[in-house]
Computed example of a mutant assay.
Amino acid sequence: MADGSHPTLPGFAHVYSGKVRDLYAPLDDAGEARADRLLLVASDRMSAYDFVLDSPIPDKGAVLTQLSLWWFDQLADLLPHHVVSTDVPDEVAGRSVLVERLDMLPVECVARAYLTGGGLSEYEATGSVSGVALPEGLVDGSRLPEPVFTPSTKAPMGQHDEPIPFEGVVAEIGPELAERVRDLTIAILARGNDVAAERGILLADTKVEFGLRGLDLAPGEDLGEAIRARGAACEIVLADEVLTSDSSRFWPADAWEPGHPQPSYDKQYVRDWLTSAASGWDRHSGETPPALPDEVVAATRDRYVEAYERLTGTPFVPAGR
Results as ranks from 00 to 15, higher is better:
T8E: 14
S5I: 04
A30Q: 15
E122Q: 12
L75C: 10
T206D: 01
A232D: 03
G141I: 08
A125E: 15
R303C: 10
V99D: 00
P58R: 06
A125I: 14
A307Y: 05
A232H: 14
E306V: 05
G31I: 09
D50M: 10
I173V: 14
W281Y: 14
L215Q: 07
V296H: 05
A307L: 09
A187R: 01
E241D: 05
S248R: 03
M104W: 01
V41C: 09
A233P: 02
G259W: 10
A232S: 14
L67C: 09
A277T: 13
T86R: 11
T116L: 15
N193A: 13
V195K: 09
G168Y: 00
L53E: 12
T8K: 07
E122C: 07
R21T: 03
H260M: 13
R303T: 10
V148I: 15
T116Q: 14
W251K: 02
A226C: 12
A196E: 10
S247L: 00
R228T: 11
G224C: 12
L202A: 14
W256H: 15
L202W: 13
S276D: 08
S285E: 07
A35E: 10
S47N: 12
G280K: 01
R112T: 14
W256N: 01
S85T: 07
E91H: 04
V148W: 13
D54R: 15
W71V: 11
S142V: 12
E176G: 15
A30V: 10
Y114T: 11
G320C: 06
C234M: 11
S17E: 12
S47F: 06
G168L: 02
G259V: 06
E122H: 06
E198G: 08
A319D: 10
L75P: 06
S47G: 11
S152P: 12
F166E: 12
E108F: 07
A33V: 13
F210G: 00
P219W: 14
E306I: 04
P156Q: 02
Q74Y: 05
F72A: 02
R112D: 13
S17L: 04
D161W: 03
S245K: 01
P145H: 14
V305Q: 00
R230W: 07
S285R: 07
V97H: 00
W71A: 10
L238N: 00
I57K: 02
I57Y: 08
T8Y: 04
S248F: 05
T244Q: 09
D240T: 02
A196R: 07
T185P: 08
Q262I: 08
W256M: 10
G131F: 09
L105S: 08
T275A: 07
L215D: 03
A299Y: 00
T150N: 08
G11R: 10
A307M: 07
E122I: 03
A111E: 02
D59M: 12
R271D: 02
V181Q: 03
R310Y: 00
L9S: 04
W70E: 11
Y49Q: 09
Y308W: 12
V97P: 03
Y114I: 05
D294T: 15
V52M: 03
P261C: 11
A299G: 03
R213T: 01
K60E: 04
T153F: 07
E136K: 09
